[in-house]
Design a protein around this nucleic acid. Sequence first.
RNA 1: GGGCGAUUGGCUCAGUUGGUUAGAGCGUCACAUUCACAUUGUGAAGAUCAGAGGUUCGAAUCCUCUAUCGCCCACCA
Length: 907
Amino acid sequence: MNDSQLDSVYKHKEVEDKWYNFWIDKNYFHAKADLNKKPFTIVIPPPNITGILHMGHALNNTIQDILIRYKRMSGYIALWMPGTDHAGIATQNVVEKKLKEEGLTRFQLGREKFLERVWEWKDKYGSTIISQLKRLGASCDWQRLHFTMDEVHSNAVSEAFIRLYKKGLIYKGDYIINWCPRCETALSDEESQHKDLKGLLYYIKYPIKDSGEFITVATTRPETMLGDVAVSINPNDERYKNLADKTIILPILKRELKVIFDDFVDPKFGTGIVKVTPAHDLNDFEMGNRHNLKPILVMHPDGTMNHYAGKFEGLDRFKCREEILKDLENTGLLEKTVEHNYSVGHCYRCNTVIEPRLSKQWFVRIKPLAKKAAEAVRKGKIKFYPKRWTNVYLNWIDNIRDWCISRQIWWGHRLPVYYCRECLKRAGELTVDSSQLTEKTKSMNYELSTMNEKGIIVSKTKPEKCPDCGSTDLVQDDDVLDTWFSSWLWPFSTFDWPNLERDFTFFYPTTALVTAQEIIFFWVARMVMASLEFIGEVPFKDVYIHGTVRDSTGAKMSKSLGNIIDPMEVIDEFGADALRFSIISITAQGQDVFLSREKFGVGRNFANKLWNASRFILMNLDREVYVCYNGKFPLENSSLADRWILSNLNCAIRDIDNSLKAYNFNNAANILYEFIWHKFCDWYIEFVKPNITDIKVQFRLVYLIDNMLRLLHPFMPFITEELWQKFPHKGDSVMIASWPKADKSLIDKALDEKFGIIMNIVSAARNIRSEMDIAPSKNINILCVCPREEKRKLIEEFSAQIKFVAGADEVKLFKRLKKPKKSSYACAGDLQIYVPLEGLIDFAQEEKRLKGQCEKLSKEKDNLSRLLKNKEFLSKAPKEVVALQKVKSKEIAEKLAKLEDALNSLK
RNA sequence: GGGCGAUUGGCUCAGUUGGUUAGAGCGUCACAUUCACAUUGUGAAGAUCAGAGGUUCGAAUCCUCUAUCGCCCACCA
């Protein structure tokens, strides 16, 4: 007996920090380029600094850690590049909220002071998520921790911007963009999330000038009528041909509107006449361009109406809508209101209804980049797992529109763009109508017009003077770049691009990207574009898209719904290993995960089972094993059980490898669960228990545990390290131990069949025991009838074990035997088992039990005989299948006959 | 409007290239605590694989249609 006594329950709290610190101290997470080895690289999807770890992160990072640990053990130089994202709008919102509590706005503070506050906030809270990742066990190379606002990244961002600008792929232009009136910034199309709303369609009468007649237009946003400059009709619409030279009077404002004819208008929708508001609707804007109409912007950036709105000036857009409707109703111009379902964009950060707004913004001309990115995927240079995302990606990228990259916020990478006021003045471009600007927009200076290239200087640092006119009156553009403009460089900016060195050459392109479906467009596609553009290579080879984490009702987990399960609480209660294992084992490839608290019991119980199996072995381990363990499984004098478990171990290794290679993580986890619990613990340990003092048995157990711990380590890093260290082992840590290799020569399916005979006997005996209500304290005798010599020998060999696990006094073997009186019967495979019950037998119960079995068998027999009479089956099915069915049929018939005999002899 | 996913025992999900006995886990029921583990063990009950049609000797699996749920995309005034 060994003196190292373990608790009977695995206590994760005493283990996790200890080993994490140990790994850190040993510097195991650091990946150093080594040309003699192969690289395996993953860049982390950088979590927002505003974020705290949620279950989506837990899933995402567990998957990455599994891959990284697996590959690291397999001999790769495995680099997991960590970092965080500055998350422009999100972070700015958080800090602004805090300011509000102090009664401050960012404008009162000014840009510089405000940014100081954001950095303060970042220093204080920005690393929360990093420490949470550590608790999860993430083996990131923390020496390389990056942040998207670090200098390296700012430099990369400027570099990218300038290169694209010089290639003519970045431009500034007037366009209808998605405007969030709460964040007061432009958003990309991807940042505007469409939601279906039940709304109303308002039919409004517009008077025809000097006629006393009206036309009717339909709109969902009446407030935008204040910006109408025309009404539009399909040129083929016979109904309205007479309106061609008429003038329409805009109600309320009494402005005169032209009538234009445009194919865009669908005669079947509404009245077939559309109001045209080029400053607040994309289609209207395009129509306006086609017909040379001058747009009228009627709102301030904060969504209140400006002076073009006349008496509605100062009202919020929705309040304005109400007032206009009242007004129209009072003047009899509101013809009708009908219910109408439509979809409206919402800000992905604050959920405010997006206002389409004419605005001067910076755009990336994306089609040339997208073309290459589509090609790379079509040619198979990048593969999606599961495959179906390929089409989603391609569909998006084939229909891509230019990317609006400027944001009117302060937290982010400021555009590397400077304006020469002198040049702009001379070009007449500096035309800010200050009466239109609120305090906010004034400070942002955002309407500074720069359509003329002259006067625009794109540069990483502020130039001393204008290269054209020599003026020193230069100002930097106030806007910052979309957060994703730094994210899309992430796979190579983390390698200090454009100053690429050894590490880059070694580790790039990265191997796999693990992410959620939500950001395929935001991030995945754009990284592909950026890498192809700036590096000339794909950024990664595999993209694994995992599902969304939902609660048990299927709702997406979110703070606002209050259905969050906090991973930190789960780690406290169940342990990090339990969290990791549970979430992985229930996540089929690419399927959404439905979580509830109870599900973490699976992992915890599994950890405890492993703990106790190890405890049992450790309790019985001789010192000699510690001294002499050489990592081998002693095959001399090995039994069927030994060869069986060894075959199954190698089978498991092979299948786990295949599963991991195919990104089937749940499969791999379940193979381990099945092997460790139901093969190793349930059968193997039970079978070696009688011989536990045998040193060879101990070596074998240690070998098996050693292998299991290695295989399980990527999934459950903490408990495997804790146990591995307690067992005889070579090396300093399981996390750098070598990954087991499957020895296919040891895999033998015949062993399963042979060992299955033993298992069947035990199961049959247990079944009888249970169904016949035989108390566990009462021992039984098992009479085994088996005509075949070799099988009898086999059973003989294991009689001690069978006795042990089935609670039998004796296992007697017979070549032939007339059914003994007063005994219960069972068939186990092709052999028969009797358990004499000496007066204890309840005939009625036994009859019922046997009849039940008979029924099952005869159904099966009927099915098979029908099949075997089917001529077409016999002629068309492969010979092997037919032969197999014949054998089966014969076996079943025999079994059934014997069962019926047993049943009859009861009477 | 277009696309995708799901539908399998009470619940949550597996199910590789079609092969005839559809698997787990949780839950349920019964029994068990001298046993490494009650976070346990043993046994049992429980599913005509959403529906219809088709291909095939043979379909949970392949095809078509339908239904329900969910997601994504889209410039439906």
